[in-house]
């Protein structure tokens, strides 16, 4: 099983030697990544967390407040409203991972390689569009007075159906979700595609010979093969749903009232609108724990599903 990597001579396995060699190679390979991450990401972060135990307004004197900030978060109704909203966004964005999976499988099944290549490039191109343009576009769609949606509703003769969209406490969350239309994310799609492509072709040939239907093929062949990729994208989706806030910041300011407030935006406002850096850092800590717990639970859940099926 194990092998020496010294070139010409093939020797009997020397497990200990191999283990040691791999140990050093392994450490050497991960050292740059870990080192850079610790120094340039973790260190500033810890610097910030250290400050979450303080009441602190940026760079003047920090007042030690112990766990007071965390106690406050526990009683902060707005934070919990934000968490509830976030859970809605989280569940929706997990459900909305499905269109990407289906699209990638369809794209994979396209046999014309040249066409497939072109589609892939087309999938990538929207990445050059800055989010500002996208937000502007939706603004001109949702606007109650001159927006595209209400004008369309008027055009088809149902003016009673006109909505205030982002201005409606019930609709606003759905509007924010709908901005992800067509719910196909380039990164996720290409990761799935890469997963499907890297599987040995004999598997596909076997599947083709068995003459199974396209739906069965999807559930029994393709889907199980991309569970690893699914976990990856799931983590990406969860992290984005828990920490994201840009859309709300620009379009709704978390409103109406707090109907679209999310923890990330609340943290942003606490830091930059009320100058409560310590509190904001503490919020960040709580969000971190939430993300970690939710990610691990969902990974467990999906892995269990997988092993059962």
């Amino acid at each position: 099983m194990a092998h020496q990597s010294v070139p010409p001579i093939r020797q009997t396995p020397r497990t200990k030697n191999k283990w040691q060699r791999q140990m050093w190679v392994g450490w050497l390979f991960v050292a740059p990544a870990i080192g850079l991450n610790l120094l340039f990401d973790w260190y500033p972060m810890m610097d910030g967390i250290y400050r979450s135990f303080y009441r602190w307004d940026g760079y003047s004197t920090a007042v030690y407040v112990g766990f007071e900030n965390f106690r406050k978060i526990f009683n902060d109704t707005i934070f919990w409203t934000a968490v509830t909203n976030m859970l809605f966004f989280l569940v929706m964005s997990i459900i909305l991972m499905i269109p990407t999976i289906i699209t990638s499988v369809i794209l994979f099944r396209i046999r014309h390689m040249r066409a497939q290549y072109i589609y892939r490039v087309l999938f990538c191109i929207p990445m050059v569009v800055p989010w500002m343009v996208i937000i502007l576009m939706w603004q001109f769609m949702y606007n109650p007075q001159y927006g595209l949606f209400n004008r369309f509703i008027e055009l088809i003769g149902m003016p009673d159906m006109q909505q205030t969209w982002l201005g409606d406490s019930e609709l606003v969350k759905w509007c924010v979700i709908f901005m992800g239309f067509p719910f196909v994310t380039t990164n996720a799609a290409l990761i799935y595609l890469g997963g499907l492509k890297s599987v040995s072709e004999s598997v596909w040939e076997a599947g083709a010979l068995d003459g199974v239907g396209p739906l069965q093929k999807f559930f029994y062949l393709e889907l199980p093969l991309i569970t690893g990729q699914f976990s990856l994208n799931l983590i990406g989706t969860i992290t984005a749903a828990i920490t994201g806030y840009t859309t709300q910041l620009v379009l709704t300011k978390g409103g109406p009232g707090f109907a679209s407030m999310v923890p990330g935006l609340y943290m942003y406002f606490s830091a930059f609108k009320s100058q409560k850096y310590g509190y904001a850092s503490a919020l960040g800590m709580v969000m971190f724990v939430l993300s970690l717990v939710i990610t691990l639970l969902s990974l467990k859940f999906f892995q269990k599903e997988e092993s059962e099926s």
């Binding site: 392994g26 973790w42 400050r51 992290t239 828990i242 920490t243 990330g264 943290m267 960040g284 993300s291």
Partner: peptide, 24 residues
């Protein structure tokens, strides 16, 4: 590759994904 503390080191990176960085 197999090496000691592999999981610990991986967790260092994994956990960082969950931390919001706007205060940095």
């Amino acid at each position: 590759l197999e090496f000691p503390f592999k999981n610990v080191l991986f967790w260092i990176l994994f956990a960082k994904m969950m931390l919001p960085g706007i205060m940095n």
